[in-house]
Design a binder for these strands. Structure first.
Lengths: 346, 346
DNA sequence: CCGTCGCGTCGAACCAGTTCGACAAAGGAA
DNA sequence: TTCCTTTGTCGAACTGGTTCGACGCGACGG
């Protein structure tokens, strides 16, 4: 393999001069620069990443830890991964993707061995076991997801509080008084999915404020069970005119459930989901939804990590916790509740 | 940072002895082994990946190149990525994920700089630009997807030929004589998606053999256009009793299209798709389908690459091209064609 | 009692970069 | 002309591992 010594020899300079000519960290004569560049071209030289990592203590790789749970909607995860990967590349970094079950061991492995310059954690739980490890790692880290304790890391997440309020307010504004919130199953919350509570609590508070009766339930994340559960819920609560769905599986099942009941949105039921635009497009879901902002969150996490890696002064800046405001994408699945229309018309 | 010199000093041995005690590449006394192990434990030593890569010319990282196209069904990709990542970890490797637009440059970058020991390419096109680069890289490579020229790499793909035959035979066996194949749009094929042709050609041949009239069409991969196209097709071809769908977007749109037409599978129309089990589960799709085998293909690719990396003798073994036989998952969406039932009953 | 063998250990070289201090040559000021 | 500074280059050291050759020491056979 061709190394910098070969380049230097061909250019007729020393190894150090070749290095400086390439990095520009010290001035070199135009003549030398040209000869080194020509030699690089001629020999097809590419610096050895391992050697460079050893010498500079920088790998230009970011570790990305993603956990995949059986009962979670995996495609949503892909958006975060893509956002992180693309943003990293923009900034000149590669991404080491770790999907290992045991995120703690994996994190320790890649940080201790200095394989990465920084870390992005996806799917962060309320009491995430990976956080203590990340805190005493030498590399900076950013999270997508809000844990209980945010010290020592930059944190980015959707404002699920805002999302809950937004959804309730939207239906309340239209005149709905009986609304049902379908969340993810309880074991998702137990595993640390506090965001389920964050949205629900905010929704409950907003409902109270607006004089809306809000029923809350958990539904399965599996097909076809979730479909049956939706039928049961709609049977049990005929007074409900608005549905808030914070559960991707339930959203996917909803079209056929409504069809089977001869219902249409928004004629018979107003529906708002909480899922990504990507998800909506792929399955041509007709429901208005509060966006996940995966692209934005992934990009923010990477940018902050890279900043702490590259800007020495940024190392000691205070850590940030940013909850981004969700956006409601109107797909026309909400309207005035059915019993209001005739009343208004009469 | 603690290095092997610190460990050696604490254990009272030389650096080389410490290294041998840890690697076991030369025998060491039980006493030394214990002292070195104790020192490692005490100091929290982890070998520096860059230094090790430099010394051994091995990084224990596999490069995974995935391309994401606008008009492709991204979630399907995730399954391959997970399969590769999990299998790699099982074998002691980490995964460098590259999702860059320009796969060619990215591939050159990570191979030339020796960031990876091997390469797995996903989404391989008929005339994939990355292949020449991969062939003259120093690292072994495996593909998921079948290109025109397979020299110099191990190739794994679903047997789309077999899939096409399987689907046609299944309907022919049930008595269908008029069948419609809905494929992906032509620009997917132009981009190198020869698998669309492979399935279609095999289906056409099988249909000719079985005396089945097979109509073939391309449909959009976007919602809601694809739904309208399906309606148009069903309007134009009322004689069709069997539908073969090789287009995930069309599959996703089909339930509502059929519902709108008052059709039910298999009563009015027998349907077979070609998509992953994962896809079917997520959206509770009721159609029988020919599996993608993403898990299997991803795992095979990694195992072969790792074998060539680790087993010196495997370097020179002939390259393999394995087309795995697809599996038909019966979800009860196919049956005897409608006009046959009364005829048989009369 | 001496030579040989082999086990266990050590020192040194090596991988391929980066970076620091030194130094020669050239240019400008006194 | 001499002194000082600037500019460009070089040699050597350093990063943190692995690995080769050598060597001391104890056991064993002759």
């Amino acid at each position: 393999m061709v190394n910098i010594g070969d380049v230097a020899r061909m250019a007729g300079v020393s190894r150090s001069t070749a290095s400086y000519a390439l990095s520009g960290k010290r001035p070199t004569s135009p003549d030398v620069q040209a000869r080194v560049a020509a030699a690089v071209q001629e020999l097809g030289y590419t610096p050895n990443a391992g050697a460079r990592a050893l010498a500079t203590a920088q790998t230009r790789v970011i570790g990305l830890l993603a956990q995949f749970y059986e009962d979670e909607f995996a495609p949503a995860m892909l958006q975060y991964i893509l956002a992180v990967s693309n943003t990293a590349r923009e900034l000149g970094y590669d991404v080491l993707l770790v999907t290992e079950e045991s995120g703690v061991q994996a994190l320790r492995r890649i940080t201790d061995s200095r394989m990465v310059d920084g870390i992005v954690l996806l799917n962060v739980a309320e009491d995430d076991q990976r956080l203590p490890v990340l805190r005493d790692a030498a590399q900076p880290g950013a999270l997508v997801g809000l844990p209980g304790d945010c010290t020592g890391v930059d944190v980015f997440d959707l404002s699920f509080e805002e999302a809950g309020r937004l959804m309730v307010d939207h239906l309340a504004d239209l005149g709905h008084r009986d609304v049902l919130l379908v969340s993810q199953p309880e074991h998702v919350i137990e595993r640390g999915g506090a965001y389920v509570w964050r949205l629900q609590n905010a929704a409950v508070a907003a409902a109270a404020e607006r004089g809306v009766r809000l029923l809350t339930t958990f539904a399965s994340t599996h097909q076809p069970e979730v479909g049956a559960e939706l039928h049961g819920l709609l049977d049990a609560h005929p007074e409900v005119t608005g549905l808030l769905v914070h559960n991707e599986a339930a959203v996917a099942a909803l079209p056929s459930v409504m069809h089977a009941r001869g219902m249409e949105a928004p004629r018979d039921l107003s529906v708002i989901g909480r899922y990504s635009d990507e998800f909506a497009r792929t399955f041509s879901l007709p429901y208005s939804s509060v966006e996940s902002a995966a692209d934005l969150l992934g990009a923010m996490a990477v940018r902050h990590v890279v900043r702490r890696i590259e800007v020495a002064a940024a190392r000691d800046e205070p850590y940030v916790v940013e909850l981004v405001a969700p956006r409601l994408v109107d797909r026309g699945s909400t309207g005035v509740p059915p019993h209001v229309v005739p009343a208004a018309g009469a």
